Simulated scan of single mutants.
Amino acid sequence: MSELTDKGIVNVRVDERLIHGQVATMWTNSLKTTRIMVVDDRVVKNSIEKMALKTAVPSGIKLSILTAKGAAERINAGNYIGQRVFLLVKAPQTLKKLLDGGVPLELVNVGNMSQKDGAKSVKKSVAVTDDDIETFHYLDQKGVRLVAQMVPSENAEDFMKLLK
């Protein structure tokens, strides 16, 4: 068991799409998820996005939509002990906030980051900006193991090797 698993977090994933087909079915089933936690400071304030996420959550799975600060406080307080929480963020910068907030991130799956201006593609469905790369290096230096894995049946690749 890891320190984060002891707190109820079974997987941490960067996925711009948040809750979608792969997450709602394959990932939640393979992880035996009881709660999906979306951590994003902007989504918390967007009622339309929150409604879309609520409708996308599979039946029987709880949903939390939190700011990075709120998530860090709840995780560190042990609020999710005994649950199987799948933590989703849109961007690596949110992970930095969680880590800086005391959340013991050990392993992060980089799943989907779409192409945007100034981004370079490092893997099918993963494009990173200079700011993303800097943030991933920060996480790596803090001991967070970063892997790229689109679906549970795919082997996880060392994400830092893809950035080189």
Rank of each mutant, 00 (worst) to 15 (best):
S125K: 15
G82A: 00
V14T: 06
R35G: 15
A77N: 07
G143Q: 14
R17Q: 09
V126Q: 00
R145A: 07
L53G: 03
K116Q: 09
A77M: 06
M150P: 09
N29S: 05
S59P: 03
K164I: 07
D41I: 08
N29G: 03
R74N: 14
T129Q: 07
T5Q: 14
P104A: 09
L107R: 13
E134L: 13
L99Q: 11
L18Q: 00
P152R: 10
N109E: 10
L31G: 04
N155L: 02
D6Q: 08
T33Y: 07
K45E: 12
A77H: 12
H20M: 08
T25H: 02
K161P: 02
S125H: 10
R13G: 09
L53R: 04
Q149W: 01
T135N: 06
D158I: 11
D158W: 08
I65V: 05
A52L: 12
K50I: 15
A71N: 01
M1G: 14
G102V: 03
K90N: 04
V151K: 01
D40F: 04
D131P: 07
L18P: 00
V147L: 13
A77P: 00
I36E: 03
L107Y: 13
V108H: 04
K7G: 06
P58K: 08
Q149A: 07
A156W: 01
N155P: 04
G82E: 07
L107C: 13
A156I: 02
I61R: 00
G111M: 04
M150V: 11
F159W: 03
M51Y: 10
A56E: 02
E134Q: 06
V43M: 05
V103W: 04
F159Y: 06
K32M: 07
V151I: 15
K54H: 11
D6A: 15
G70R: 00
I133G: 14
M37N: 11
D117P: 05
T28R: 00
Y138D: 12
D131R: 05
D140P: 01
Q141H: 06
M37E: 10
Y138P: 05
A156D: 02
A148L: 02
K96I: 13
R42W: 15
E49K: 11
S114G: 15
K124Y: 05
H137T: 06
E154R: 01
K161G: 00
K45F: 06
T28G: 03
V89F: 00
D15R: 12
H137K: 14
K164D: 15
I61Y: 04
T135C: 12
F136G: 03
T28D: 05
V10Q: 12
N155V: 03
E154L: 14
N79H: 11
A127P: 15
R13M: 07
E3D: 14
D132S: 08
G118Q: 09
T34D: 13
Q141M: 08
P58G: 05
S153D: 10
V128M: 04
R13I: 01
G118M: 07
W27M: 02
L4K: 01
Q83E: 14
R13S: 02
S64I: 13
E3P: 10
I9P: 01
Y138L: 12
V144E: 01
K50S: 13
M160R: 02
Y138I: 02
P152G: 06
P104Y: 07
L162C: 11
E134K: 14
G111S: 07
A52F: 09
L63S: 08
V12Y: 08
G143V: 11
E134R: 10
